[in-house]
């Protein structure tokens, strides 16, 4: 096994979503906490891509913010075996994450100047031009403003800015979900090429299983703040173990084998403020039995990269 660049252990993050103090006093409302991330652990090997997938509210973006230090964990540990300055982030919305008043050259140069304040101007300019070229933009684009670019080009600017810090590790939170498919293909191909050439490690967050299949080496499926299953990509698609993963794979529209007469699964993701008892998936699970309503399936001891938190799946397979 290669060395892990990131080790996440029993990570927790709770948010206080209580009513304001006065309301609590007058209306006798209790404090309420939302467990956005509820005991999550995974490793990412250097040079690999681990993807977190799940529906909205499952906690995947909170993990991105915990890993990059934008939130502090409420419990558990995150160990980054590298220089913290070598971690960068790419956000979903290339419209909100670039300063509209700065020229592209200044946006990309900012991390360079932060890392090396004494760098001569000519060196910074040369490096900016090189970076723009790397992501498929023209060096002449440095004098333009973000609004002059399309969504896909803006995401390239975000990537150039992230690369300026010479990162080893990139946290990508839904980097292509705001883009059209043909542009998404360009950005995904670029990210894969950069990974190959620079040996980058990605934590890739997405709700789109087909994108994740294309990008990831290992996939962790999340449901209500917990990882329900983690497997290498090909294995997850070949033998999904958790009923929730199977449901997800069944419900995504499939271009090559369209399921035109599907009977969709009922139910919705419950509120994370008051999750169901036991296994939080049990109200929607076709395999649930009485133990699932009482006990929470714990994560299996670490055998390979293949773990599932499900009583039914654990009985049927020897993981």
């Amino acid at each position: 096994m290669t060395e892990a660049i990131l080790e996440v252990d029993a990570l927790e993050r709770r948010f206080d979503v209580s009513a304001p103090w006065l309301n609590r006093v007058i209306e006798r409302k209790p404090r309420r906490t939302l467990r956005a991330v509820d005991g999550v652990d995974f490793d990412i090997a250097r040079g690999q891509t681990l993807a977190l997938v799940g529906e909205s509210g499952c906690g995947k973006s909170t993990i991105a913010k915990l890993v990059t230090g934008l939130h502090a964990p409420s419990g558990g540990k995150i160990r980054f075996n590298g220089d913290p300055e070598k971690m960068q982030m790419i956000f979903q919305d290339p419209f909100a994450s670039l300063n509209p008043r700065w020229r592209v050259g200044r946006i990309v140069a900012e991390p360079l100047r932060t890392l090396n304040p004494q760098a001569p101007e000519a060196q910074v300019t040369a490096r900016v031009e090189e970076l723009l070229d790397t992501v498929g933009l023209s060096p002449a684009d440095a004098v333009k403003y973000p609004h002059e670019f399309s969504g896909g080009q803006r995401q390239r600017i975000s990537i150039a800015r992230a690369l300026a810090g010479e990162p080893e590790f990139l946290v990508c939170d839904e980097p292509t979900s705001a883009l059209d498919v043909s542009v998404q293909a360009q950005v995904l191909n670029l990210m894969k090429r950069l990974q190959r050439e620079m040996g980058l490690t990605y934590l890739f967050i997405s709700h789109d299983l087909s994108v994740v299949r294309h990008m990831a080496d290992v996939i962790a499926v999340m449901y209500l703040g917990r990882i329900v299953e983690i497997q290498p990509t090909a294995d997850l698609f070949a033998t999904p173990l958790h009923p929730y993963t199977r449901m997800l794979l069944d419900t995504i529209p499939d271009l090559e084998a369209p399921k035109r007469d599907r009977a969709p699964m009922g139910g919705e993701v419950p509120s994370p403020v008051s999750p169901p008892s036991g296994c939080s998936f049990h109200p929607r699970c076709p395999l649930a039995f009485d133990r699932c309503t009482r006990e929470r399936p714990e994560r299996e001891p670490r055998v390979h990269d293949r773990r599932v938190a499900c009583f039914a799946a654990a009985e049927n397979t020897d993981v």
Binding site: S210, I252, L255, E256
Partner: peptide
């Protein structure tokens, strides 16, 4: 457009892409 959509059945390495926008 069809070629640029990642497949659920195989990992084709490089996605086909339409140059430009």
């Amino acid at each position: 457009l069809m070629g640029s959509i990642p497949s659920l059945h195989s990992d084709e390495g490089e996605l086909r892409m339409i140059p430009g926008s």
